[in-house]
Simulated assay, not measured.
Amino acid sequence: MITLSVVVPIRDGERFIADALTSLCRNARHDFEFIVVNDGSVDATGDIIDDFRADLPGLTVLRNPAPVGLADARNTGLSAASGRYVTFMDGDDWLAPGYLAQLVDAIDGLGCDFVRGDHVQVEGRKRVVHRAPLARRGAVLNPRDAILPANVRTMVDYPYAWAGIYRRSLGDLLHFPGSLHTAEDRPWIWRLHREAATFAGVSLAGVFYRRMVSGSLTQVGDERQLHFFDAFELVFKDLEPEFMPKAVRNFCALLAHHLEIGDRFTPALRARFEDRGAQMVRSLPPEIVSEAVSRMSVEREATLRGLVPDLPPSPHVRVRRDREDT
């Protein structure tokens, strides 16, 4: 019987996939399976994966003839999973030895629907531990209680699917919105926290997340970045009024962030991005938008008011902040 299924989507990852799979070898167990989804790679990724067939017990390789994107690649892996639990790893990241067994022990011991943990952010030689924004650790909680307050970083601001372990019996709650090529984790984490029954946070930081990798979607300024708006339309759809201030604040902060790094867009794409952003802001309750924007940094408020000049005035005295979380 398989205890844990690890889903690893990868596209054109020849530089990093060997590191990822080596780390899985150091986490292998007879009751673990590793489902690598090669999402239409045209480089040497497939050959490198094949080199690990004899070294990584439980390895299954699925291949999409043409790329379908991260969300659908993960869904392909989920459909093939047979474990009691599921977790994810991106193909350019790696895991600490023994981390997966610790994850399984955590969710077994707590008996909840899903468990979230911390991670290590990697930029070159720099390593920084990023903690999940949950103060109470090792206790079973209601996921809905971890969405608010609106103006404090909470678990829906920590959307990384790979930073946790999930009961496969959650079924459709684990599936990602199809066809999204960016921000796919955003509606996924919101739905999980709105609809699952129980969760917990634990102090485990065994995922090493490579940031600022050239070629990743966070660094590419093509029209797939417009999927950011599709993702948040799903967040706002049928959202309970009590959570609207949080979702609006979440969206506006990320929109400002994208606009601040808008130099990666072509002029035509930037115009489309700004137009869609302005339309979406205007579709939201203006008093909630004004409240959210007024609590951001002066720079971000200026960015958003430049995009939507007809926003209602701020109800608060402005305090300059040097740093703004996204």
Rank of each mutant, 00 (worst) to 15 (best):
E274H: 04
P241H: 05
N142I: 01
A253H: 09
H258S: 08
P309D: 05
N38L: 06
S294M: 09
G124S: 10
D105T: 13
D230G: 02
A302G: 05
F228H: 00
R276G: 07
G13R: 01
L234A: 07
A183N: 13
N27G: 03
A205Q: 02
A278I: 15
G98M: 05
D50R: 06
R305P: 02
I2T: 13
L226M: 08
R211L: 10
S79I: 04
A18V: 04
V298Y: 07
R125T: 12
L255I: 06
P315D: 10
I165Q: 04
L148P: 00
R29M: 13
D93S: 12
I261D: 04
E324L: 12
R295D: 10
Y158N: 06
D90G: 14
V289W: 05
L78K: 05
R11C: 11
I48S: 08
V140G: 08
L204S: 00
G40W: 06
F229Q: 05
W188V: 04
N27D: 09
R127P: 13
A183Q: 11
A292R: 00
G83K: 05
G171C: 04
R144M: 13
S203K: 02
L192M: 09
A18W: 03
P313F: 14
Q102S: 14
R153I: 15
L259S: 07
R305D: 03
Q121G: 11
G138V: 02
D275K: 06
A200P: 02
R224F: 01
R305A: 03
Y160G: 11
E260N: 13
S314V: 05
I147F: 07
H181L: 09
I189D: 01
I288P: 06
A256S: 14
V298W: 09
E242G: 03
T326V: 15
S203I: 02
V319G: 10
D157E: 08
A302S: 13
D230I: 00
R137L: 14
F52E: 00
A278V: 15
I2W: 08
R63E: 15
F208Q: 04
V104C: 15
R11D: 02
G215Q: 06
N38Q: 01
P67R: 08
M212F: 15
G262Y: 00
F265C: 01
G69T: 07
G277N: 09
P67Q: 05
T326M: 13
M280W: 10
H130G: 00
P149K: 08
F265G: 01
D51R: 12
G69S: 08
K237Y: 12
P65D: 14
I35C: 10
L304P: 10
I48N: 09
L234V: 10
F273V: 00
L59R: 12
D39W: 10
S79D: 15
P9F: 02
V7W: 02
S297Y: 12
R305Q: 07
G124P: 05
V289K: 08
R15M: 09
R53M: 06
R320I: 11
F232L: 03
A163V: 11
A197I: 06
S290I: 09
T303H: 10
N142V: 03
T154D: 02
R137Q: 12
G46N: 05
P309T: 04
D185K: 03
